[in-house]
Design a protein around this nucleic acid. Sequence first.
DNA 1: AACCAGACTTGATTCGTATCAAGGAAAGGT
DNA 2: ACCTTTCCTTGATACGAATCAAGTCTGGTT
Lengths: 249, 249
Amino acid sequence: MSLELPRCQSDNTTRCERCALHARCLPLGLELDALESFAAIIRNPRPLKRGEALVRQGDTFESLFVVRSGSLKQAVTQEGQRDQVTHFYLPGEIVGLDGIGEAHCYGSVMAMESTFVCELPFRRLEDLAEQLSELRGQIYRCMSRELRNDQRMMCLLSGRTADQRLASFMLGLSERFRARGFSPYRFHLSMSRSDIGSYLGLALETVSRVLTRFQQQSLVTVAGRELTINDIEALVALAEEGIGRHSGG
Amino acid sequence: MSLELPRCQSDNTTRCERCALHARCLPLGLELDALESFAAIIRNPRPLKRGEALVRQGDTFESLFVVRSGSLKQAVTQEGQRDQVTHFYLPGEIVGLDGIGEAHCYGSVMAMESTFVCELPFRRLEDLAEQLSELRGQIYRCMSRELRNDQRMMCLLSGRTADQRLASFMLGLSERFRARGFSPYRFHLSMSRSDIGSYLGLALETVSRVLTRFQQQSLVTVAGRELTINDIEALVALAEEGIGRHSGG
DNA sequence: AACCAGACTTGATTCGTATCAAGGAAAGGT
DNA sequence: ACCTTTCCTTGATACGAATCAAGTCTGGTT
């Protein structure tokens, strides 16, 4: 889960065209001069240590952030309830889309390991988008992609068993790593069992038990947070399998 | 759930400034001439009868739709599984935001009663948004509001009991009706128990049982699909209540 | 190197909700 | 108004996952 760390340019200017994530990031498809205007609004806050907050629930919403390296989790605190993990963010993914148009941030976002981000002050991004139709399109696309992801998540949370949730979760991570040029079969989980459980609506003990069972069934090999997928077809079959009357047919 | 039916202008031009939903619709905040340009791109398809599809899963994405009157549900069909209801749409709400930037529509959207919609061809909307920064802002706001709603839903689906899901669901509807000028205490459910169950990740029998129990506890009165909320504070308390270790504290 | 705190595993038990099953009520069509 | 279909309610039972409870492992700290 650790991309090559980005160079911090001495002039504090991010060079998107040289970034390893260029192909999967917000400014995708911008012409070179547009890219330069885009890069000019980027700020690079100091790197976050494991456990540090990038935004806190209730903070004034000002910026979007793109993960350059490392990973983060979003957690929502609700009235009298335990925190709930709502998103994990990997390199190239955008933090804060759910805060647009609101005065305050919806949840807290915290680094799960050493993490570098690019900060995009939203006002300036909006101004830029006024001139760059490609950028406008990209913002729309990113938001609607997230809407679809959330809906997939809702489908997962209602109606699927613990096994299927874990299978889908691992396949989802696998796919995201593949897309970023990492091995889709072997990767590091930067989140705890408890985070996974919270995200998937399961008790952490259940997460642990299911992973153990998957290992016994030779679907995966788990060594602490190192995960190896041994039988991806079986995982896919499991994730798609219908069960019972309510959740499938 | 039935707003005054909109007049179909004989010249087929929608007059947003006269629409009862104006205050809650996409063109909110547009100047009068901007509003006119906006209204010019609106198409009014023929009304949908109960059960008719507005879009089918896999259709080419071309337009957003705003509900003028009536109500719809979105349902997603997945590989070998039963359909899952992912959204209900009331007057003033926008259908199709999750299709932006995709070639095809994510789920099917079907009328739950006689329903009128305004169609907004997305290409033309985009062109218009290029000139109208207010409109751009509104589109962003609508999308990010939906992101937050989906996240609230994810929190509800992992970690809350059947009672709490139903309580939240009814409170959510109540609030949406209130915002539209209807009674927040007494309204018609245009969706079936089965739809509610699918949406909330519960078996339809559970929905029925919980409603019966809520009625015995004098929280609500249910007569078929007519719902009366008798004790909204108790519902709120129930919805916010923490349970156990995993879901609350 | 030893210690500590947090993270993880594993087992026993309980509980909520799905499932199966069947009867009753409402709604739509002719 | 009748019939048919779908929707809804209610009961009995089964099962998956949460909870409670130890104990083990791990990484970070001094």
